[in-house]
Simulated scan of single mutants.
Amino acid sequence: MSAGPVIVTGAAGFVGLHVAERLLDRGETVIGVDVFNDYYDPALKAARAARLDGRPGFSMVRLDIADAAAFLALVRDSGAKRIVHLAAQAGVRYSIENPFAYQRSNLAGHLSVLEAARHNGVTHLVYASSSSVYGDRPQSLAGGDSAGFTETDAVDAPVSLYAATKRADELMSISYAKLYAFPMSGLRFFTVYGPWGRPDMAYYGFTQKILAGEPIEVYGEGRMARDFTYIDDIVDGVIGVLDNPPPSGGHEIYNIGDNDPVGLMDMITTLEAALGREAVKIMRPMQPGDVTATYADISKLNALIGYRPKVKLKEGLGRFVDWYRSFYPG
């Protein structure tokens, strides 16, 4: 464990909350950064932040990472040499309706973080990418990708603006690592779920509707599959990578996933069992920007830190449902 604080951007977000908690649990000083936008219910973000407020070693800064001068000053004044950059505008479908939100958060915001890191001697920048960069590869369902998506696969055919911005972040980071010789690691997350999750994710929205007795819309007519990855397993990967930077000037990309894709209908069946209720299902065609399947090859991360996911979908959805019922009583 290195001296000095760790900056976690997006600390009031789903993954950011859990990463900050894990760092605090092991005695780190953590500076959280978040803009608290209203992409989804701000009350959920406030509740996440409340879990962190008051913990020894934690402070939250309300700041837009795309404000390059303000973020550079924060990094400089804090003395932080490690950054876990998780802040971003998420959501594939939202990017179709609000493209300029992605320009600001994901492009200008990422560049702002890179500039702050290179001007302040940051020793390791870990940043969030996405499995969306792999594009649509339906052959994975038919056994054509038996080992899953690998980090060396071509990622030049994004099917959403969100995916395009995440790939652009990777390319910017590769260039900065070579130009300015500070280590960076990009993390391609695969369908993260669990307590304190994002309401725009399918499992969360399905839970809301099933408990309310409302029908759920099943896109792709149920033929999609996702490599659902429980939040604790994601955090294991993030912290493990943070502690193992590449050499100076190095840039590495790692998949963090469950390595076990589950069909959408199987996920719904598992969720119904956890809720004790059956959903009324309305089958819909694929939506623009969606991909048929995701499937993470995690051999590279396993080689680095011995990474192996521990929580399977049945257990993970059960934990989520328990949290959901406690957070939304009645």
Rank of each mutant, 00 (worst) to 15 (best):
A3K: 12
P5V: 02
V6P: 05
V6Q: 01
V6H: 02
V8H: 01
T9E: 00
A12K: 04
G13K: 00
L17W: 00
V19T: 05
R22V: 03
L23A: 06
V30E: 04
G32Y: 00
N37W: 04
D38N: 13
Y40A: 07
L44W: 01
L44R: 11
A46T: 10
R48L: 06
A49D: 00
A50G: 03
R51G: 03
R55K: 15
V61Y: 00
V61Q: 04
D64E: 08
A66Q: 02
A69H: 08
A70F: 09
F71Q: 00
A73L: 05
L74Y: 00
V75G: 02
R82H: 15
V84R: 11
L86N: 14
A88R: 14
R93C: 10
I96K: 14
E97W: 04
N98T: 13
F100P: 02
A101R: 15
Y102D: 05
R104W: 08
S105Q: 13
N106R: 15
G109D: 12
H110C: 13
L111N: 14
L114P: 09
E115H: 04
E115M: 12
A116L: 03
A117T: 07
R118C: 09
N120P: 05
N120Y: 03
V122I: 07
Y127C: 07
Y127V: 08
S131A: 15
V133D: 10
V133S: 08
G135T: 05
G135N: 07
D145P: 01
S146M: 06
A147L: 14
T152A: 13
D153M: 15
A154F: 04
V155D: 12
V155W: 02
A157F: 04
P158M: 04
V159M: 01
S160R: 04
S160H: 07
L161K: 04
A164L: 15
A168Q: 13
L171D: 12
K178V: 13
A181G: 05
S185Y: 02
G186Q: 05
G186K: 15
L187Y: 12
R188I: 11
T191A: 15
Y193E: 11
P195G: 12
P195A: 13
W196S: 07
D200Q: 07
A202G: 11
Y204Q: 09
I210L: 14
L211R: 09
E214A: 15
P215G: 10
G222M: 15
R223W: 08
M224F: 11
A225P: 11
D227Y: 11
D232P: 03
V235C: 01
V238P: 06
G240S: 05
N244I: 04
P246A: 11
P247H: 12
G249N: 03
G249Y: 00
N255Q: 07
G257Q: 02
N259P: 00
P261W: 00
M265R: 09
D266I: 05
I268K: 03
T270V: 14
L271D: 10
A274Y: 01
A274M: 00
A274R: 05
G276C: 06
R277H: 11
E278Y: 01
V280A: 13
G289N: 07
T292H: 08
T292F: 06
A293D: 06
A296H: 01
S299F: 11
K300I: 06
L301E: 06
L304C: 10
Y307F: 15
P309C: 04
V311E: 11
K312W: 12
L313E: 06
G318L: 07
V321I: 06
D322C: 08
D322F: 07
W323H: 12
S326W: 01
G330W: 04
